[in-house]
Each structure stands twice: as structure tokens, then as C-alpha cells.
Design a binder for these strands. Sequence first.
RNA 1: UGCGGGGUGGAGCAGUGGUAGCUCGUUGGGCUCAUAACCCAAAGGUCGGAGGUUCGAAUCCUUCCUCCGCUACCA
Length: 677
Amino acid sequence: MKNFKRYLVTSALPYANGPIHIGHLAGVYIPSDIYTRFLRMKGVDVISVCGSDEHGVPITLKARKEGVSPQEIVDRYHTINKKAFEDFGIAFDIYSRTSNKVHYDTASEFFKTLYDKGEFTEKSTDQYYDEEAGCFLADRYIMGTCPHCGNENAYGDQCEKCGTSLSPNELINPHSTVSGSKPVLRETLHWYLPLDKYEPWLKKWILEDHKEWKANVYGQCKSWLDQGLQPRAVSRDLDWGVPVPVDGAKGKVLYVWFDAPIGYISATKELTPDWEKYWKDKETKMVHFIGKDNIVFHCIIFPAMLHAEGSYILPENVPANEFLNLENDKISTSRNWAVWLHEYLEDFPGKQDVLRYALCANAPETKDNDFTWKDFQARNNNELVAILGNFVNRTLVLTNNYYDGKVPARGKTDSNDDAVLQEFAKIKENVETSLETYRFREALKEAMNLARLGNKYLADAEPWKVIKTDPERVKTIMNIALQITANLTIICEPFLPFSMTRLRGWINLNELKWSEAGKSDLLKAGHEINKPGLLFEKIEDEEITRQIDKLLATKKANEVAGAKTTPGKNAITFDDFSRIDIRTATILEAEKVPKTTKLLKLKIDTGLDIRTIVSGIAEYYEPDAIIGKQISIVANLEPRKIKGIESQGMILMAEDKDGKLVMVTPATKVSNGSMIK
RNA sequence: UGCGGGGUGGAGCAGUGGUAGCUCGUUGGGCUCAUAACCCAAAGGUCGGAGGUUCGAAUCCUUCCUCCGCUACCA
């Protein structure tokens, strides 16, 4: 493995439109923090940079909704998030932001360099413009009727009802979700980064030179590269962001994904005048910690930008994590389905390490994982308290009881003692190897093995028994137990910095370098220790129940909030209405359409005829259960082929606020083909 | 539809060709210094299904099922 002179660790810039939750922590910031702390302890030159990502459309929309300026929004969340990181001991050297001047200058200059080198291509396109709001609309902010399934709430990029991907101009009756008005097409000029041009270079750099990247990262990159890269726009029509530094580019800003990663550079600039040695010296190892949604940006687009610019180094590794779920459900900011850092600390003051431990032990390193409060409790009670806390406690209590808090001298060791002492170095080695290969879960488990070793040692040596027959021997035993404790303060420091600080206080030990780990004379004979407290406390069921109740309350609140009925539609004439042929019918046969989750193929009696209708209700109705049911249908809807089956009409369903579909059935049985009017 | 990542004892994970491991939980025993914590032992898996390659497969190939992503900058 290549030896580097210094390290540059970056952590994904959190988007400043909401607070930080446990998913962010588990996916990005805990691993990056452990990694950074480990490197610092090794005494290598390392800086860790992060900051708020403060541009982009969602922030402007949030601002518009609240009637404040975008700056106010980002100020709010920048402050909250910066504090949350500090509170959890996430040890960035700098937590910057992309709305500050250094960043504007850096991003602007970066763009200018590429522009001057002729790296960009320019292209004019027609895009939807919202005249009322005075802005261009991203695909996502246009809604309309899906041309395929008739869903009236299809987005400009995709219809969630039938799953087809769309482009905004396919939508029938498009309207802006910003103002509600009908958008118009307007021509606009943008700059593109020709990713296709860098494709061969990227292929070699990733697929050949970085086979060691994590499977999820490498696979994702390979998939993109194999499919062929397209030029990507680097500018947007928006008044919030870094202005495009080119004449005639008024009203245009750098697209967020272009400016955000440059935030790493500007943060470094803000931190140190020596920033260039971290970014431009081949002796620097750069590592990006991110979540899986960011893989493409950090592995393909940003490296392509850096490569095009020419003077920058590239990331050595991009250890992306998968996602963390919460109690079996996706974490969601908008649905408030999350554990927010600031709220956690209100409920569990001083227990940062417990969360750090639980999240690291259960980090989504290879696949999505689930965070449950029960698991959190078990990790705390069965591992932190029972194994680590307990070992420390029994060692310190015994030392205080037997030797009045003075470290006893070690006498002659027996073979078991020697075996234990030799384990130190092995454990240190294991932790180190795991950390260097970004396997944090494993590293943590290895670190805990030191405490396990300690417990076993005490159980085997039984000092509380031996003290009655051979007090000299006990001095050796306790000396060794204390050396294990001292080693713990080093080995566990990257993972549990708050607790290890307390532990060092109890044994009167300064923070030691990583290289001291593995030694068996960290505490000299006669060294005095203090009265210990409890390193970790048991978490009772009631506290866990309270958290779960809190989440259940959120779920309820969401349902109430979601209960808002869809806004009414524009008036139509009676003539419009009478053109629709709605009538009753009875289901004769029903079967699932193979290889689909939602579709049922139904044979129905409409009174006029027997016909086939394909309907997306399979998630709510079992085929067998609905045979014989009377329903309402639109009989004169243009036939459509769905999954190769011609569907002749549509079944009327009432859609509940949670998306649940319910049949519209006549209150009492009527003859098939009865008109509904 | 396609592509990427998963599917291993009750839970969470490791294991990429050679007798299936770890942590937690469970059961039994031991110990009593310790926050009923600790130590020992045991039970528990035909490694998502099917087919194939091989002397031999969780591990390679084919196919199917299933979860999560790639599509709302939400890590």
C-alpha cells in the first residue's frame, strides 16, 4: 500500500434545509469522525473538512413557503447543524458553508478555469418557465396528467402511479407546483460538462486502478460507465447560488452539484493558507465519506471536474455507506420520521457515545440497516454497560479496595498473564487494519474484544479469591487489569471519545498516541487513580417505550397532516360531465397479472357486455375475495394496453390519503349497467 | 424493463472452492470483585428457491423469487 504524507478527509456536505438525524450520522459522519480521530492519534497530518450545502432549488422553495429569504433558511440550519456536530464530538477541523465569500470566489474561479480551457459545451433548450413565480421549473416542480395512466398528479420526471418516466412536455395540463400557474416554454442557454469525453479516462481510473473500492461503490460506478456518460448541465436559471462568471449569464447560477463539492476546497482554503498542499500534492490521500445517493457525484462527476481542471488530486477512496432505516421505515425529513440529534440529546443528555456506539455497531456498511430503539437499548445494556463499563468498574473498584487507589507493581507473570499481555498488540493490529479498510463495525467489535479479554482475565485469575491466600499474586493480576484499562483509553478513543475522556480522568492518564497502544506499562507502579463513576448506565424499558411512543405519535400526526383533501378542480360544464359513461358492473373473474405487484386482470359484466379491465388494485384486494363484487366503472374510456393486455375501461376507486384504494360500490345491489349520474 | 448492492442459526453480521464462524439473545452450570453485571458450556443454520460445473460450493455458472437503491439533493 502506498504511503501518504498527509490525509484530507471530507464528509458529505449536509443540505441546509433541515436538521441532522441518525441516518446522516451512521452513514457519513460517525465513520469519518472515527477515521479522522484514528489518524490524528497516529500523529499523521490530517484535516477533516465539512460544511453546509446551501444552494439549490429546494431551499428557495422552502424560503418562499415560509416567506423569508433563502439566506435566513440556510442560516437557521447551518447554526443548528454545526452545533449538533459539535455536540456529538464530530471533530471537523472546519465546518464551513457554501454561501460564504471564500466559496463564491473558489467556485467561480473553478468554473472560469474550465470555461477558459474550453472544457464546457453550450446548449440552448426550451424549458418550462413559471411566469407568475418568475422562475424556470425543474422537472420535479411541474405536475400534470400522466399520458399513460391518466393519473392527474404525475410529476414532470415520473408518474408515481404507473412508474413510467416522463419528460415535462409529455404531461397533459402541466402546472407549476410553485405557483399553480400554467408554465410556458422558454428558451434558455446552459453550460454542460461533457462527461462522455472523460469516459475512457474514468474507466481506467476507477475500473482498473481502484478495484479495491467497496462493492457497492465500484458496482455503481461500473454500471454508470458501462451505460455511457452524457454531458451534464452545470448551470441553472435561478437567483440563489454562485453566479455563472461569464458575460451575458445574468440570472444564471452554478448548479448545486457543481458548486457543492467545490465546497470541500473552499472549506480547506478557509481553514488554512496551506490549503494547496492538501489538494494539489500527490502525497496527499483524499478520502470522501458519503452516503450511497452521492456515489455518482463523488466518483464520477467531481473527479471529472478535478481532472478537467488539471491541478487537483483525486480521491483515493470513497467509502460510501448504504442507508439506515428507523424502526422498519425509511427515514424521512418531510414525514418527520427520524431521530434528530438535538432531540436525542435532550432525552439522553451526556449519552453521545451510546448513540455513536449503536450507530457504528449497526452501520449500513454493506446494505441498508435498521435502527430500532430496542437494539439501541440492547447495545447499551449488554455491551457498553455489561462488557466495557463493567470491566472498568470492577478493575477500578478492586484497585481502590485493595491498594487504596495506587497501581500495584507487577511481579512474576504466569503463562496466562503473558498470553493476555500479548493479546494487546494483536487487538491493536486488528483495529488498525479494519479502520484502514473502512470496516468500522468490525473495528469496533475488535476494540470491544479488549474489554472482553479483560473480563475473562479477571474471571480466570479470580483476584477476589486469591487475595485470601496469595496477596502478592493479586498485585500482578490487578496491574495487568489496569494496563488493559489504560489500553482501552487508546483503542476506544476514536469510537467513544466522551467516555474515554472520563475514563482517563479516573485513572489520571493523559491522552496517549495510538502508538502507545499495545504496551503493558502505561500505568507505572504507585501511580494513583481516582474514585470511578459509572462509565455507562443501564437504559430502562420506560425510556425506550417513551421513544417508541414518540415515533408512534409522529406517525399519527403524519396521518392527520396527510388527511388534507386534494384541492378541488376547475368547474366543468354539464356537457363535459355527461360525456363520461359511468355505470355499475360486477366482477366475474379476477387474477393477478404475472410479474407485476399492483395489477389485477378482471373480467366484468357491464350490463352491455363482458369485458376485460386491468386495474392497479392488487395491493389492496385479493383476486378471490372480489369475485361477485359490484363496482362502478368508466365504460367509455379509450382502451389501453397495459402489460400487453387490453384494458377496456377503468374501475372507480376512492383513494385514501395514505394511497389506499377502496372500491366504489352501490349501497344496495342494482342491475349491472345502471348509469351513475 | 435495465443496471448496482443485499438475502447465512431468534436478531445483527463475517466468511468468495476444501469439515459453517462472530456479537447479542435463549437454556443449563459456575462465580460473587462488579451496574442481576462477569465466566464456562449447550442448543439452534440442508448458507432465498431450483438446476448445473467440480473429487468437493454459502463461495463459480444459469434461472427464478425477494428487499434496497439508481427516479424526488433526503446519508
